[in-house]
């Protein structure tokens, strides 16, 4: 084991986290290497600053008091937001809920109207417009003499015909 392999293992060694298979070669290296030994010593020095403070003082009747509160339904969530703490929404909560419901309704309606105005799949189908019908329409156009207006559209549209007649009378 060389220094590059040894040094990352030192903290785990000091914390007792290495397996014997890892610790044995490290111990051997530390005996031979003053540099790594010094780093290991420095690691031990830090631990000497974390001394035990001694027994802690517990207020009299603490456990009984906590047990009573727990049984009374205190969940200890005193740092939670008031709305979550007691489940009572109050006027502000009611208004917020109402606003949320109204907003959801408006969004749903707008999506619904938008969907209705969109062309349906059937409207976009091109099946009715066959090549045959297109050719027939072309033939008919060819049969009509040039210069004569077509009357076919006017025949199909009574309103247009009446308007035309009125125009003529005038």
């Amino acid at each position: 084991m060389d220094c590059r392999e040894a040094r990352p293992l030192v903290p785990g060694y000091l914390d007792g986290e290495l397996s014997e298979a890892q610790a044995a070669p490290l111990r051997k290296h530390l005996l031979a290497c003053p540099g790594c030994r010094s780093i290991t010593q420095a690691g031990k020095t830090i631990a000497s600053w974390f001394v035990d403070e001694g027994p802690v003082e517990i207020p009299a009747g603490f456990a009984a008091r906590v047990a009573r509160r727990a049984l009374a339904g205190d969940t200890g969530e005193r740092w939670a937001a008031p709305l979550e703490a007691d489940g009572d929404l109050g006027l502000r909560g009611f208004v917020l809920q109402l606003t949320a419901v109204a907003a959801a309704l408006v969004i749903a309606l707008s999506i619904g109207f938008r969907t209705m105005s969109l062309p349906r799949t059937d409207d976009l189908r091109a099946d009715d417009f066959s090549l045959e019908s297109a050719l027939e329409a072309l033939d008919e156009m060819n049969r009509e003499p040039l210069g004569e207006p077509s009357t076919s559209k006017a025949d199909e549209s009574p309103e247009l015909t009446e308007a035309d007649e009125e125009g003529r009378r005038e």
């Binding site: 603490f62 906590v66 969940t75 200890g76 969530e77």
Partner: peptide
């Protein structure tokens, strides 16, 4: 300290 420990136990219970 007392408040924190108390809350810890109350949370644990719930």
């Amino acid at each position: 300290i007392e408040d924190i420990v108390q809350d810890t136990f109350l949370k644990a219970y719930s």
